[in-house]
Amino acid sequence: MNTLTRKHLLGLDGMNAEEINLILDTAETFKEVSERPVKKVPAMRGQTVVNLFFEPSTRTRLSFELAEKRLSADTVNFSASTSSVKKGETLRDTAENIQAMKIDMIVIRHGAAGAPHFLAGLLDASVINAGDGAHEHPTQALLDMLTLRERWGSLDGRKVVIVGDITHSRVARSNIFGLITLGADVWVCGPPTMIPPQLEDLGVRIEPDLREAVAGADAVNVLRIQLERQKVNLFPSLDEYSRVFGINNDVLRYAKPECIVMHPGPMNRGIEISQDVADGDHAVILEQVTNGVAVRMAVLYLLSGGEAPEGKSDRRELRTVREEPE
């Protein structure tokens, strides 16, 4: 398998290991592109991508936009901080208008779970989910898995602990789906008010005690406390949260010495992650950001019909763009 047969990337739920590894393999090749003096290949020349962001986002949007530009795609951004309903125009109308402008791909971030699925059912364009409500954030999980794979080669049997607000976290869900598919041993720890029902049926182990959860871990993925997402108070105070569920060097002593600490960002330093861990040797947070661009390049490229390069490719569409034609 060296191409993706699916048209959309809506989530990692239902994606098999072969597909995930294809994306990660392709991302590894693309990583090299970002190291070049001229960071651009012609792989998506002539294709138009719209970044449709209905929720505020800095790094995900920036990361997608850089990925698109490094593939030579034409990109436009559409941001609306309010939901389509409040704005007066429906999501359907917004999408159909964009489609009428003949675009090839839509990257969508939306506060409502299922919004990308809704678009995928309506439009001819490929749809990439850049985060839908508390449902999925597949490219974030893919970049997390790329970061893990670079460390260990294989994720099989590796203990990965996801800590924090699982209920409201799309990062957690996509990570759970993907990590389990790749054979990791996934543990979850967080306030009981933020652990959704029957989570264990997804194949994860729930451990209420943070030190027990982290014991012998190969990686800890620290979720952001999303104060803006909480409709009711799900824990007593930030202070108590950081004392019971915050990741600090004391907690990390229970993990494997080479354990890595990930965070999808933006971090609340001193709440879910301590200053010294965020800046310490365990943290791979900036590697994640670097990998984010590569993973998104891979997803865009593969969904546009691209073939995975065999090793270091000298295929034309992956050669550096020296100069613009014309």
């Binding site: 508390a134 799309r170 029902p197 029957q198 049926d201």
Partner: peptide, 19 residues
């Protein structure tokens, strides 16, 4: 019911919809 939009259970957890 709160902000729930579907039955609370395995599928609400899987789909990230409030239950």
């Amino acid at each position: 019911t709160g902000s729930g939009v579907m039955h609370e259970g395995f599928y609400s957890t899987k789909l990230g919809l409030s239950g």
